[in-house]
């Protein structure tokens, strides 16, 4: 047996991270385009049921089940996957670019003496070979990457780059033990506990309208202006990460991958550039409005209405205009 394309699944306590299915969708695309088989690997403890669930639209599900990968650690995952790669010789190893994958995928590539393109937004075919596209300069510019050499080539895809609903459930695969020699594996880090950061006092996920403030606000004194805008719109106030990091708004009002996920009917982003970690938390909002002085700010790509201008001129005018017509 051997493996062509291997998607590494992510789970905690037997619960699959949904982003894994996005990587499977990416793998199904590559599998068609390159004429290669697709397999999935799950590591962990008590993952039998999960492995069975994953047997959809793939040739095989490999499992590596042991205490040593019971809690995720970079040491445990890298050593186990390295053994599997040596045995199965996959051409591609695919991941979804989650916080866990950030932590170990490049260490794995280094241990394998192979290359990784991280956080890709997609791929396109150039004849027979895939070209992987990733963002640089915080989403302002895209870059094309290709691999030379047979691999294993490692690729991680940005969360949301592929849609898990597009999973082709055509074939059903089988579960196979990956045969990892766990006694050879040494784990140096120790996971102590997992806990929720701040007590969430506001639940922004239920907000009807949100005014969200970014670093463009410059100073905490300027928050008054944003409070006023939120008040006239009868909206909750939220923010991008730097604003919460600086303590200008409480942490439980942070929107994004580390904060809350929101879907209001109006999301008004003021002085927010639109980094992917922010966008994943708000892109499914109804109407998205962006006010930003930089016409190339990535936030405009997902906005319905955009105002290119200085927020310190636009926001006071908007407050007045809304007061007038509400």
């Amino acid at each position: 047996m051997s493996v062509d394309i291997l998607v590494v699944a992510e789970q905690r306590d037997g619960v699959l991270n949904r982003a894994t299915l996005e990587a499977v969708v990416a793998g199904q695309g590559l599998s068609k385009d390159l004429g290669l088989d697709l397999s999935v690997l799950v590591l962990g403890k008590n993952i039998g049921d999960l492995a069975n669930d994953l047997c959809v639209g793939v040739k095989e599900v490999l499992i590596a089940e042991h205490e040593k990968v019971g809690d995720y650690t970079a040491d445990g995952y890298c050593a186990a996957i390295k053994q599997i790669v040596a045995k199965e010789a996959p051409k591609y190893i695919l991941f979804s670019h989650t916080y866990m994958v950030r932590d170990y995928s490049s260490k794995l590539a280094a241990a394998l003496n192979r290359q990784l393109v991280s956080d890709c937004v997609g791929y396109k075919m150039d004849g027979e070979s895939p070209v992987f596209v990733r963002q640089i300069f915080q989403g302002k510019i895209d870059a094309d990457f290709t691999f030379s050499g047979d691999g294993a080539n490692l690729v991680s895809f940005q969360v949301g780059a592929f849609n898990a609903d597009n999973l082709d459930s055509g074939t059903s695969g089988e579960v196979r033990d990956a045969g990892v020699a766990f006694d050879e594996i040494e784990v140096r880090t120790k996971v102590l506990d997992i806990f929720e950061g701040v007590k969430q006092e506001v639940d922004l996920s239920k907000a009807e309208r949100i005014v969200s403030v970014g670093r463009g606000i410059k100073k905490p004194e300027n928050m008054d202006l944003m409070n006023e805008l939120a008040a006239v719109l009868d909206a909750e106030l939220a923010a991008s990460r730097p604003v919460c990091d600086d303590g200008w708004l409480p942490l439980d009002r942070q929107v994004g991958s580390s904060g809350q996920t929101v879907t209001p009917s109006l999301y008004l982003a003021v002085g927010i550039s639109g980094a992917i970690q922010h966008i994943v938390g708000m892109k499914n909002s109804g109407t998205i409005v962006a006010i930003n002085k930089d016409p190339h700010a990535p936030i405009f790509d997902i906005a319905d209405y955009g105002v290119v201008g200085d927020l310190f001129e636009v926001v006071p005018a908007l407050i007045a205009a809304v007061k007038e017509i509400r």
């Binding site: 290359q115 302002k140 510019i141 870059a143 094309d144 691999f147 962006a290 790509d301 997902i302 290119v308």
Partner: peptide
């Protein structure tokens, strides 16, 4: 074995109505 081929300004996927 990894080639950084070219960089470019991404194409807009969604057309926002822009006010200036």
């Amino acid at each position: 074995s990894l080639n950084f081929n070219r960089i470019f300004i991404p194409e807009k996927t969604k057309k926002a109505e822009i006010f200036e």
